[in-house]
Amino acid sequence: MTDPTPILRADKLSFSYNSEEPTLKDISFSLFSGESLGVLGPNGGGKSTLMKIIVGLLKADSGKLFFENKLSSDYKVYPFALFSYVPQNSELNTILPVKVNEYMDFARSLYKEHNSATDIDELLDLVGILHKKNSLISKLSGGEKQRVLLARALINRPKLLLLDEPTKGLDSNGQDQLLAIIEKIKTRDKTAVMIVDHNINQIIRNCHKILCLNRTYHWHDHRDLLTKNILEDVYHCEFEHLLIHENDLKNNTEQNGTDHHLFCDHDHSKEIDPHSLLRRKK
């Protein structure tokens, strides 16, 4: 059962850089405890901008943002303690020789009064990077860096976790492992998770809800209601094979014995691996 109060609710958010053509227009969605929202869309579609508005790095031109049903502007201080944000790892400054445990300690020092029990080793162990705690972050691989960033984001036990392209630069194994960790956190702490990513398959597989975003166009609903047409509208291109909701397919198979399903209206029975890949039409 999910909490009836959304952790996050956006109501008609609009934003433009330097009063140019709007980057976001009337974006609305909600996210409940333990739910995950995947944000899909082409480059420049406003995904990262939306995330930056939510975490307070940018200010929306209009619209409202609610955290636990309270308007963000009604908080005395922006509710940073409620959420954690993981920007893309390319944003890290590589000049300082920062070790994993030092970086974790920077973040923990902010929450000491509120959460002295936060154990850095436990978090590093959770994301599978404990053996690297004394290593310089600059010497870690892309996947390891992402795990460190994720561990840092968990230090305040956030109710909402916002991840901007967490699988960027990782191979498919690395992506799977990272998403498995996120799934574990979501289940363990009932954390609501919002993920921006370019891997459509991964997002559809791992998120309950999908937000498709391309500047002024947006679609937001449960993943089972996502259709090929919606994706094609967002990306302005055609897809020839879509990974779909296994449940949908299962239902159809049970009902009429075919491998047809609603999502891509395609008979997958002749294919060896029917639901593993989504690709753009060549």
Binding site: L57, E91, L96, F106, R152
Partner: peptide
């Protein structure tokens, strides 16, 4: 000291943690 370092190393992470 740790705030200076957090801001220098991961500015967006630090800001969104309340620094």
């Amino acid at each position: 000291f740790k705030k200076w370092l957090f801001l220098t190393y991961d500015e967006e992470g630090a800001i969104t943690s309340g620094v």
